[in-house]
């Protein structure tokens, strides 16, 4: 190992540091689709409400099956309760990334996050 390290000259270490920094910076720079900023709640495709993801609050949408309860928190949002039979949108938990979406199909409700840049059409889990 030390025999190999002896092959490195002082400037080589600077190059390596630069390379590691470049690689390190490229990951957060290119692998985040930006910050989620707003939560959009739709019923039958129509926007019912839009909240910035800054303050914690709750919102209730009434669909054909009953009330869907949405919880907004700083930087994230989730479907807290839904009358649908299989609870897929509730089990999705917190949505944090832009364009992530939770669809409560039986109650015709969807919760999606939007960011400044739209890097994907949608994200589903």
């Amino acid at each position: 190992m030390s025999a190999w390290l002896a092959l490195l000259r002082p400037g080589d270490w600077a190059t390596l540091l630069l390379g590691v920094l470049t690689v390190g910076i490229s990951f957060p720079l290119l692998w985040t689709g930006g910050q989620a900023e707003r939560a959009v709640i739709r019923l039958d495709g129509k926007v019912m409400a839009e909240f910035p993801l800054t303050a914690a609050q709750r919102y209730t949408v009434t669909g054909p099956l009953g009330d869907t309860l949405i919880e907004i928190a700083p930087g994230r949002a989730r479907v807290l309760a839904d009358p649908g039979p299989r609870q897929y949108c509730v089990q999705q938990g917190w949505l944090t990334r832009p364009n992530a979406i939770a669809i409560c199909a039986p109650n015709h409700v969807s919760l999606s996050l939007s960011g400044r840049s739209t890097s994907h059409d949608s994200l589903n889990y």
């Binding site: 092959l7 490195l8 000259r9 002082p10 400037g11 080589d12 190059t15 390596l16 390379g19 470049t22």
Partner: peptide
């Protein structure tokens, strides 16, 4: 053209790879 006292083949290799 870099001074060989300071920069060896590793610098050339890494920069060329990038």
């Amino acid at each position: 053209r870099l001074p060989t006292r300071w920069f060896g083949p590793v610098t050339a290799s890494v920069l060329a790879a990038f």
